[in-house]
Design a protein around this nucleic acid. Structure first.
Length: 256
DNA sequence: ATGCCGGGTCCTACCCGA
């Protein structure tokens, strides 16, 4: 089983990239982030031709997540449980396929909006930990994947790519990511590539891609029984070299 | 640390991303 996650930075700008990548990679499930449109505007039709069904949780202009799958699935949640009901940011979709729960997430960046913006990111991470705990206690096979906006450790960013006070690397941010690992989740890419740079994002500015000044912020976390089935997990760097790319590349996890 | 790029929208100067 192949599960992938990709922050596409606008699905309307990246529709052809996604269709081409699906043909090339043939994942069973693809989680998308930053679709940047309302669900009704999600361009589902071309993907149907490739045998994929889509479900989108969107909003105008910002955020937005979606699932494309060629296996049958059911949507369980369209928002992260535990967040205030008035929180309308489209950042979470949770599906079940073949008994496996898959959560697709777009975690708040946390650098805008001052103290309140960062507090929102930490609160979101706390609610995610609670959701993970509930699903792990139910002993369901679980994947949480997406754009976490967290560089978990110093290997996960190029020298000088971020300030030490950046919301992606602050100790409070990293502590909450580690908590997810202590809860029993396995960071799939790090399990396969224990050391060094395995970047998933390169800024559009200042020649970041050409200088390989990247970040590892897109992750796939696996519950114990799924971690035992892990055979491969890696970002697909090829996508970043194509014309008009997203600033993120797909991360692909293969389970036996 | 910011806004060099690139997406969005109140259509055009400004917000947001990481």
């Amino acid at each position: 089983m192949k599960i992938a996650t990709w922050n596409v930075n606008s699905i309307r700008q990246r529709e052809k990239h996604v269709a081409g990548w699906l043909e090339r990679c043939q994942p069973d499930v693809l989680l998308l982030q930053e679709i940047k449109c309302e669900a009704a505007a999600f361009p589902a039709l071309p993907y149907h031709g490739l045998g994929y069904r889509s479900e989108a949780v969107g909003q105008k202009a910002y955020n937005g997540v979606a699932v494309l799958a060629r296996v049958p699935f059911e949507v369980r949640q369209r928002a992260l449980p535990g967040l205030p009901a008035e929180d309308a940011q489209a950042r979470y979709i949770e599906i079940v396929t073949d008994g496996i729960t898959i959560a697709g997430i777009y975690l708040p960046n946390g650098n805008s909006g001052g103290d309140a913006g960062y507090a929102y990111k930490l609160a979101w991470l706390d609610r995610l930990a609670e959701r993970a705990e509930a699903l792990l206690e139910a002993d369901e096979p679980l994947v949480i994947a997406g754009d976490f906006n967290v560089c978990p450790a110093d290997d996960d960013l190029a020298a000088g790519a971020l300030s030490p006070s950046d919301a992606l690397v602050r100790p409070e941010t990293r502590a909450r990511f580690r908590r997810l690992l202590w809860q029993g989740l396995t960071d799939a890419v790090r399990a396969v590539h224990p050391h060094g740079a395995v970047y998933t994002f390169w800024d559009y500015q200042a020649g970041a891609w050409q200088r390989d000044s990247g970040l590892r912020i897109d992750h796939a976390l696996l519950s114990p029984t799924l971690a035992e089935r892990l055979v491969a997990a890696a970002p697909d760097r090829e996508e970043r070299a194509l014309p008009q790319p997203s600033d993120h590349v797909p991360v692909v996890v293969e389970l036996r």
